[in-house]
Design a protein around this nucleic acid. Structure first.
Length: 480
DNA sequence: CCGTATTGTCATAAT
DNA sequence: AGATTATGACAATAC
């Protein structure tokens, strides 16, 4: 906006009007002896306002009449001084009102970050985890099914594995059924490996459960190795204080033979498995070489330190998670993944249907809890990252908005300055046209215009105005 | 060796 | 009431 040119134009207008006024004064002197009504008419035609004696007021209508004849003071012209960014300027005052609302709203709007996150269009951290999880699970199901082609015999129609199934018991969809089929095939492989695995290492079991986090778990107890027979069957004397963990049925006594067969038989009952020999050539992840399970001299000395156990575990079981190792050590007849992802009904029925020792049940529950929590922690961290990213976006947006508001404020200040200048010029112009009863000009340095609520405009001595302002100010202060 | 990022785990509260 | 989920805190590990 070109302020100088505007101001120069104003000055030109004012100076031009002064010249006209001088001429008017001269003319006025010439017609001074005319009747009053004629003089008023003449003055009116010259856009002058005459004051009658002591009456120093005139109406706003008079003033507007005066203004309407002066294009530079029209509201339309004033509104033109507002910057385009204020919105439509065609409606003058309305645009001002609109601007005020917009401006104050923009400034006073307190953006709650939490709300901002919730309202953020791309915010997904409330609902997405569910979708994400289910999506991930779905993908996993597909992946799980398709990524293990070697686990079915070549040329075998996989649907042939599916006998009439007790679907109600497992509450499965067809997709779940396929998943379970696949997972259970893996499971049988694991079982088979356990049956054929000759070297069952009791030390491995004890060391696996010696880990600090295992000990910290509320479900765990301190047990000591008491029996170890040649076949790898072991028994444990449980700590009397701790919950009773009986491994006798798990890896001792009849378990390695009959219980495993029993488990397999039960699973066959559930209809997920074909002939065991069908999978005997398949590779599986739980199988490790027996010598890999041999404890080192270091671990044989009952390290008791988590670091040594950890090193032992790292050196020998890099591919297995700790829970997988524990599950393997206790011959849990389910994969960790299966335990974690199994629906709760299936999980509970599994625990009740299968012969499982307390220790096994405890481990399975721990595995499930840890597995669920692991996924939850991953989701939680993803969500946290999303929130951070969203907040960063929010900060960028708010900073940009702040800059915009600053620019608008600067434009606004400019407009206010221009309007003040115009008001000043207007007052000056009005005073230049004012004549007292004797036809003398009113000194704008001594008098001021005061608009009243009833639409009248008073010519008030500045002393009164300033003193009135002071009184008002004092009243305002007193009110506060 | 130190700092940092990642990941798993536990405890606890909330759902 | 038990299962699940969310999250802060801690520790182990990798880089």
């Amino acid at each position: 906006m070109d302020h100088r040119s505007e101001e120069e134009k104003n000055e030109e207008r004012v100076s031009g009007q002064k010249e006209k006024l001088q001429q008017n004064n001269e003319d006025e002197n010439k017609v001074a002896d005319k009747p009053e009504w004629e003089a008023e008419k003449t003055a009116e035609s010259r856009n002058e306002i005459h004051l009658n004696g002591t009456d120093t007021s005139f109406s706003l209508e008079d003033l507007f009449q005066l203004l309407s004849s002066q294009p530079e003071y029209s509201l339309e012209n004033i509104s033109e001084d507002f910057p385009p960014l204020l919105g439509s300027t065609s409606d003058g005052i309305n645009s001002l009102a609109h601007y005020n609302v917009n401006f104050t709203q923009a400034i006073s709007h307190d953006v709650n970050l939490h709300e901002a996150m919730l309202l953020y269009p791309n915010t997904t951290f409330r609902r997405e985890p569910v979708a994400r999880t289910s999506q991930a699970q779905e993908q996993f199901l597909q992946l799980n099914f398709h990524s293990n082609p070697e686990q079915t015999l070549p040329g075998t129609n996989i649907t042939g594995f599916v006998p009439p199934v007790d679907n109600q018991m497992w509450n499965l969809t067809s997709q779940d059924l396929l998943y379970d089929l696949d997972a259970n095939i893996l499971d049988e492989i694991n079982l088979l490996s356990l049956v054929t695995e000759e070297n069952f290492d009791p030390m491995e079991v004890s060391q696996l459960f010696e880990e600090p986090d295992s000990l910290n778990s509320s479900h765990h107890c301190n047990f000591s190795l008491s029996v170890c027979d040649e076949e790898g069957a072991i028994g444990y004397s449980s700590d009397p204080v701790s919950p009773h963990y009986d491994l006798e049925g798990a890896v001792g006594g009849y378990y390695p033979e009959s219980s495993k067969l029993c488990h397999m038989h039960q699973r066959n009952e559930s209809g997920f498995h074909g002939d065991l020999t069908f999978h005997i050539f398949h590779d599986h992840t739980y199988h490790t070489k027996p010598d890999e399970l041999e404890p080192t001299s270091e671990s044989l000395s009952w390290p008791g330190k988590s670091q040594k156990v950890s090193r032992y575990l790292n050196d020998t079981h890099r591919n297995l998670s700790r829970d997988e190792q524990r599950a393997k050590a206790l011959h849990i007849p389910f994969s960790v993944d299966e335990i974690v992802r199994m629906p709760v009904d299936s999980f509970n029925s599994m625990l009740s249907r299968y012969y499982l020792t307390d220790l096994q049940v405890s481990l399975i529950r721990d595995i499930r809890r840890r597995g669920k929590n692991k996924v939850a922690a991953q989701n939680c961290r993803k969500r946290k990252l999303d929130m951070i990213l969203n907040l960063e976006d929010e900060v960028c947006n708010l900073q940009a908005k702040k800059e915009t508001l600053k620019r608008e404020q600067a434009q606004c200040n400019k407009s206010i300055t221009i309007m003040k200048q115009k008001l000043h010029d207007l007052c000056h112009d009005v005073f230049s046209r004012l004549k007292d009863s004797e036809g003398r000009p009113v000194d704008p340095n001594l008098y001021a215009l005061q608009c009243n609520h009833d639409g009248t405009v008073l010519i008030v001595p500045k002393e009164l105005v300033t003193s009135g302002h002071k009184k008002e100010g004092q009243k305002g202060k007193r009110k506060k």
